[in-house]
Nucleic acid binder design. Structure first.
Lengths: 336, 336
DNA sequence: TTGTATGCGTTATCAC
DNA sequence: GTGATAACGCATACAA
């Protein structure tokens, strides 16, 4: 059995409250007694019961990080960044994976509603549903969204400016003399995907290129989907000369399909992928990518959340970060 | 503020204990009252405070998964498998990343010692230190190790049989007529690495090949280390014709270095890598790998842990799983 | 500076 | 079947 405050109090021959104060570095305890208490605690390897502590103090120093997809290296990087920042502030994180299932999201949400965590960060995923909104209201808005939109602009969020990112990508491809640029994104009823499309359209317009709706493709975000979409495309009427693939796993599959089909990158098709991480960097040829500001996304989201928690700041804040276009071989025209 | 048992009791005009029984599906509460209570709870979106519940019941239905490295896709797969199994059993997981730092491991261990979780699974990492041993003793051995060894064979564990895996890999390479097979593994004072070396030695002996200590290389498990070790090797006295790389990230770097050096796989060097996942599968040419039984590692570790927790089973168990050799292009000799 | 008393929200052990 | 009541381990307001 674990040793408790009461045990220490008995051993040190003081009151429990004194022990509590000593252990928590609170004022109002004599130097002598404090040292004695700390010594005893250490000797007996005392660990405060966090459940009891949380119950009494209404604070657990834990936050939930709820991610829609664990397969994405970019998301993992964001988590690592959050964890690093949290560690520095004395918080621990609980990592939860919803696998894009709404019911799991709701179940993890109860971590917050049942006071097991002081706040929650949501990474990615579809449009925010009603349960999240409700929870946010009832839980003093101790929620931060990363790369996720809500219909009502209500949540404190840290977002990647996909529109601007895609715009840069198109611009670059146009400079490289590619004319028929395909966009591979996600479901069109997802607001974030609409944002990408809007960046794509704007860039085409500003470059004087015609928009061809047939060059916009919506797929799931996995490798197979990326693979399949290419097969579909080369069977189609309009054959692009360049691809902008806006998610990591799709990018992987797309590149595979191109190579498997006997085509060459960038000679037959230029490719701009998404995410600058170990996965995309392993691909041959070296891939031009939109680099997601993963480090900053994580750091900022945690900072926002701690503000919400500690300052009871309930005014919502939004930070928008622009991805960086990292140009490598896969998008360099051989004719330039 | 969140609604509590007491509130519901008041609304339903019954005692708190009755509400508790009703909500927990315990016997001893009338059908009528039970329905009434459940209705009120639902209407008010009641969520039991898990801290209080855990404190009173001495059970949180949460387990900690403490991993040494989040960068490894194989480890992520193990976690996903654990999470899936846990979900089915009504457990949630807390995912912790130690980054191979002993102090972080110790701090996360306090999740267990402070009763925030019912048990813990450790994935990977160096030899088990004294703090883990101590914790295991004081916490009724509610600890399971995955791919991790302890000096004293004391912990319930699920292990990959690296020795057997490497043995198969050597055997295969020998069949393909490779003669100078290099082994790239981790630090030699790690027991797991010694196991790999032992499989390597046994296979060489059984194949009638000479052992050359200069063909065994110890590196860190990251990409750069894999890259560097190849540079070092081709500067060396003994040039191998095949590599067995026993960790994912090292494998990535090694392959990169080979290709960067202008060499061809498998013509100049055959390669057997580690881990059958998205990362290794993206590599060109298709990589022969030792496929880690990630799914089973996760599932079994959770089952073991639940047994330890619920059955108070303190007899230690060990399960050993053999990796599967998946043969692809990178290890096929052009002369066969 | 220190001790006493109370409460945090639940579960569990008694009575009735 | 139901209701008091005492834990669970800690924090804190207040009294001393």
């Amino acid at each position: 059995m674990q040793i408790t405050l009461k045990d220490i109090a008995r051993m040190a021959d003081v009151a429990e409250s004194t022990v509590s104060r000593a252990l928590n570095d609170k004022p109002g305890v004599g130097r002598e007694t404090k040292l004695k208490i700390l010594k005893i605690a250490k000797e007996n390897n005392y660990r405060p019961n966090q459940l009891a502590r949380g119950l009494a103090a209404k604070k657990t120093n834990m936050i939930a990080v709820i991610m829609a997809e664990m397969d994405s290296p970019g998301n993992i990087e964001i988590v690592k960044s959050i964890e690093k920042a949290a560690d520095e502030k004395g918080y621990q994180i609980i990592l939860c994976n919803t696998n894009n299932q709404e019911d799991k999201e709701e179940s993890y949400l109860s971590l917050l509603e049942s006071n097991q965590v002081d706040g929650a960060i949501f990474i990615g995923g579809k449009l925010v549903g009603s349960h999240l909104l409700r929870a946010s209201f009832s839980q003093d808005n101790r929620i931060v969204l990363v790369n996720r939109l809500a219909e009502e602009n209500f949540f404190t969020s840290v977002l990647t400016d996909y529109s601007q990112g895609i715009y840069q990508a198109v611009e670059h491809l146009v400079e490289e003399n590619f004319k028929k640029i395909a966009l591979v994104c996600g479901s069109r009823d997802d607001l974030i995907e609409e944002e990408k499309i809007s960046g794509y359209k704007n860039a085409l317009r500003d470059s004087g290129l015609d928009l061809n709706q047939e060059l916009i493709f919506s797929t799931a975000n996995d490798r197979q989907a990326g693979y399949n979409v290419f097969l579909e495309i080369i069977e189609g009427d309009v054959i692009p000369d360049a691809f902008i693939s806006t998610r990591e796993l799709t990018t992987i599959g797309l590149v595979e399909a191109i190579k498997m089909g006997g085509y060459f990158i960038p000679d037959d098709f230029a490719v701009v992928g998404y995410g600058d991480n170990i996965l995309t960097s392993v691909i041959d040829p070296p891939l031009t990518v939109l680099s997601e500001p993963v480090e900053e996304l994580g750091k900022s989201s945690l900072e926002f959340l701690l503000k919400l928690i500690n300052d009871n700041l309930d005014s919502q804040q939004i930070k928008v970060l622009t991805p960086e276009l990292i140009i490598r071989e896969s998008s360099i025209s051989k004719y330039n």
